[in-house]
């Protein structure tokens, strides 16, 4: 049978099944509006470790083990581990994989990593290459802050457009058999750069990439925004999602009330996070808690999940480069939505 294809979109014939998911967050996220949905809230943001880097590694380990348990399979059944994070050389993922004894592929898509790993994992499962694939990602406020910004104890003010890196890790188990929501297609995004230089305004830097991916997705799948129960962007934040709505409107797509942003969902306004949450963990924990729960319960039938990432490093921004953005999208449908 000929496989259906789009310009940037792959359609899955066998529709990989999400058989397990798990979300693990830190104390600040645990006080947010989604606190009842997370699988686990850890009150100690060092996770019993000596450094924040070790803590982030521990988060991935715990969330993956949690997801495997949630899927009701044995750890040895996982054939491949796809993971990435924000730290240089994605050390959190790689060091977490050290303790797993399963084949590992490290991916980097900055904050888009959850969608990127799910899209790749779905391709591998759909193609019949692996029966069960685990996708995970994490971010930690304190490791991201020291790598991209300033020491934690520096007495500076956060610019009003900045966002708060989520401390959290989410894991999803994809399989070719079992029960659960299905991934029906995935759109891979192009690197898009509209010349934003301000490292404290990630939302504006990533919104054009999100627009490109969304438009490509709607064209490839011949769908409209109204066809989805929920269109979820990763961590555009308040400003970024407002920009995205404007940009989409310029291209004739109207994002209505079914559009939401993980970065705005995860924190309350009074938690001093300015534009909202960000980081790999932001979209990963929101997807792997409230969203998948609601898809399983049938409240959402068809969800377009698009995570955005800013592909910068401190070196590139110090050399005056603008910030390129990327966005990948996947469509998750409820089990009985055939």
């Amino acid at each position: 049978m000929e496989r259906k294809r789009g310009q940037q979109t792959v359609f899955f014939k066998n529709k990989p099944i999400i058989i397990g998911h798990y979300s693990l967050v830190g104390p600040k996220e645990g006080k947010g509006p989604l606190r009842d949905y997370f699988s686990k809230i850890e009150e100690d943001d060092l996770f019993g470790q000596k450094t924040y880097e070790k803590a982030e590694r521990t988060m991935i380990e715990q969330s993956l083990r949690g997801a495997v348990e949630n899927a009701g399979i044995k750890f040895g059944d996982v054939r491949l581990f796809l993971s990435g994070d924000l730290l240089n050389q994605i050390i959190s993922s790689s060091y977490a994989a050290r303790s797993f004894d399963i084949p590992y592929v490290g991916v980097f898509g900055a904050c888009s990593t959850m969608a990127e790993s799910l899209a790749l994992g779905a391709c591998l499962v759909d193609g019949g290459h692996f029966d069960t694939v685990a996708c995970a990602t994490s971010s930690h406020f304190s490791t991201a802050e020291r790598q991209f910004r300033f020491p934690l104890e520096l007495g500076n003010q956060r610019p009003p457009t900045s966002q708060w890196t989520v401390t959290g890790s989410g894991s999803t188990i994809l399989s070719c058999k079992g029960h659960g929501p299905r991934i029906t297609c995935a759109t891979f995004g192009k690197v898009t750069d509209y010349g934003i230089n301000d490292v404290n305004n990630m939302g504006a830097a990533m919104a054009p990439a999100a627009m490109n991916t969304l438009i490509a997705h709607f064209k490839d799948t011949k769908t409209k925004p109204e066809d989805y129960d929920l269109i979820l962007s990763g961590d555009l934040g308040k400003l970024g999602s407002e920009i995205l709505i404007d940009l989409m409107e310029d291209h004739g797509y109207k994002l209505g009330l079914n559009y939401k942003d993980c970065g705005q969902m995860i924190f309350k306004r009074n938690q001093n996070v300015l534009m909202g949450g960000s980081g790999c963990g932001c979209s990963a924990t929101v997807l792997n808690s409230i969203i998948l729960d609601k898809i399983i319960k049938g409240e959402y039938k068809k969800v377009l999940f698009m995570a955005t990432g800013a592909l910068l490093s401190t070196t590139s921004s110090q050399q005056g480069e603008s910030i390129p953005g990327i966005a990948h999208a996947i469509v998750i449908e409820g089990e009985d939505n055939e």
Binding site: Q157, P160, T161, Y194, N201, L239, E242, D246, S322
Partner: peptide
Amino acid sequence: QDKVRNERYNNYVEAKIAKTHAWPS
């Protein structure tokens, strides 16, 4: 063409940023 587009986008973003009151700080 990109340069024009980027400039326009940057101006648009600048205008979009909600003006916070500077007086308290």
